[in-house]
Amino acid sequence: MTITIKSLSREEYLLPGNASCPGCPASLGLRLLGKALGKNMILVVPASCTSIIQGPYPKTSIKLPLINVIFASSAATASGIAAALEILGKKGVHVVCWSGDGGTVDIGLQALSGAAERGDNILYICYDNEAYMNTGIQRSGSTPYGAWTTTTVLGKRRHKKNLPMMMVVHDVPYVATASIGYPLDFIEKIRKAARYKGFKYIHLLAPCPVGWRFPPSKTIEIGRLAVLTGMWPLYEVERGKFRLTGVSRSLLDKSKRSPIVEYIKIQGRFSHISEEEIRILEEYVDKLWEDIRKIIS
């Protein structure tokens, strides 16, 4: 069922006057999460930009029950909340981890993997801005090859860790990728995930104007380009069944994909990148899709 904009609630769960930077994909993501699930959720937030976005005590910009937790612990904390809700008989409440890429693919990975393996009843959303943005743009395991960060000033030498696929092999009922460039697709995936009992994972690409060095007006556009160039395939894996979604459905054919330079050239973090490095990134994208082809066939 396709979601229309008009069908979305006007209720806001991320209140304006929060501390996000202009054009922030994390704050938009939070807004959309509220539109997707409404009030029936408890949020778990590890150290990340969202720790700041909320604003300081005694106020908060998020109108949902929320617990801030230490960096490596979001999935485990969520497991505990889910267990408590179950035994206390509180039904219909979703427990949602809202973690950045550092808190997911790096320091939070052990807890994430543990919760997934146990099949705990939580929805884990990684908003991936591809570096430690809250501490000032340091490289993470999710930073792409070639990208400048303050700890890879000449560009990162390794590719991005493929976390969604890693979650797929955990054999959980629902894994999906999403991009902030396609909000309705993201909302649909959240709602779909929430219908499953057990561990659900959504990896949201979240282009960060500050860290990626682009004007804040371009957040959505870059989120779209990531998908159109094939850098970030949109898919979902329901009970092990892989399916490309949205515009990504037509991108198995390389000729349908936009050249990745269209994505790269408008980001300052790639401003120094050489022809050779672009070729390496192109090969990475080709391999990404080759792997998808193998999964599908």
């Binding site: 209140l15 304006p16 006057g17 501390a19 202009p22 909320q54 604003g55 106020k59 908060t60 910009s61």
Partner: peptide
């Protein structure tokens, strides 16, 4: 604990 409020960091229109 903190309670939800619009303008938790003030009127951000000033930014």
């Amino acid at each position: 604990i903190s309670t939800p409020a619009k303008g938790a960091v003030g009127k951000t229109g000033f930014w």
